[in-house]
């Protein structure tokens, strides 16, 4: 197995109950003893229904959330032990593409500002001056299949699929090696979804990216991912090669989930 990029070791997260107007709410175990390893260059799919803990795990990887126990290692380094400075350097190497392309782009910024912002934030690593940043932004746009003449436009001038391409260009701007893809196509129409999925595959092959793909859409995960983990009530229920999970699910939950997903067969 190639070198692990991301290791999640026995991570648990409990949200303590809040005392409010109507008394104290119960604590919620959002993650229970989750362990996963993502190898360099692979597409790892995390599948779960609403409330399963997908988002908590993603936020924990980004260190937007502090796990209650357990460790998250990036290239063998415990992210909790890093100094703020090293953590910031590390964030250039882990980027995220969000679910909703309508909410994740600032409507008041131009596409150029949006795509160059990560280069500005991580300028000590990226090390580009203003002109070079603009060139890089144009290059990124063409990489995701948009023309560089669009740099001066604003998000509202773009369709959902185009916006998601811009979101991907932004995520690539700091030169990451690990991309967290949080349901990147669930807000898109199927024909557009197909384009974005193919773009992701093309980018992965070209840039040797590692994907951590979060989704509730089994068909999309099966198409994109080489390995899959199913999460349910904060626990990893089943994990393995994509084909193995889909063809021979071991657990009752996996069987239910796979059989519930509607499928259309395309006539040959």
């Amino acid at each position: 197995m190639p070198e692990p990029v991301l290791e999640i070791r026995n991570v648990s997260k409990t949200y303590t109950g809040r005392r409010g107007l109507f008394g104290k709410s119960d604590p919620v175990d959002a993650l229970r003893d989750v362990s996963l390893t993502v190898a360099r260059g692979e597409s790892f799919g995390l599948v779960g229904e609403s409330g399963s803990g997908k988002t908590t795990l993603t936020r924990s990887i980004l260190r937007l959330e502090q796990p209650s126990s357990g460790q998250i290692l990036f290239h063998g380094n415990d992210m909790a032990a890093l100094s703020p400075r090293s953590l910031r350097r590390l964030r250039a190497r882990i980027q995220i593409v969000f679910q909703d392309p309508y909410a994740s782009l600032n409507p008041r910024m131009t596409i150029e500002d949006i795509v160059t912002e990560p280069m500005l934030i991580h300028r000590d690593i990226v090390g580009l001056d203003r002109a070079a940043r603009r060139d890089r932004a144009a290059e990124l746009l063409s990489l995701v299949g948009l023309g560089s003449q669009l740099l001066r436009r604003h998000p509202h001038e773009f369709s959902g699929g185009q916006r998601q391409r811009i979101g991907i260009a932004r995520a690539l701007a700091s030169g990451p090696e690990l991309l967290l893809l949080d349901e990147p196509t669930s807000a898109l129409d199927v024909s557009v979804q197909a384009q974005v999925l193919n773009l992701l595959i093309e980018l992965q092959d070209r840039l040797q990216l590692t994907y951590f793909f979060i989704s509730h859409d089994l068909a999309v995960v099966r198409y994109l991912c080489t390995r899959v983990a199913l999460i349910h009530h904060g626990r990893i229920i089943e994990e393995g090669e994509t084909n193995r999970i889909f063809d021979a699910p071991q657990t009752e939950y996996a069987r239910t989930l796979i059989s519930a997903a509607p499928e259309v067969r395309v006539p040959a």
Binding site: A194, Q195, I201, E202, A219, V220, Y223, F246, V266
Partner: peptide
Amino acid sequence: AAIPTRETRRGELQGL
């Protein structure tokens, strides 16, 4: 053709 199925190979999905 844009919906991935069991048989769709990686990279072979047809967008519109």
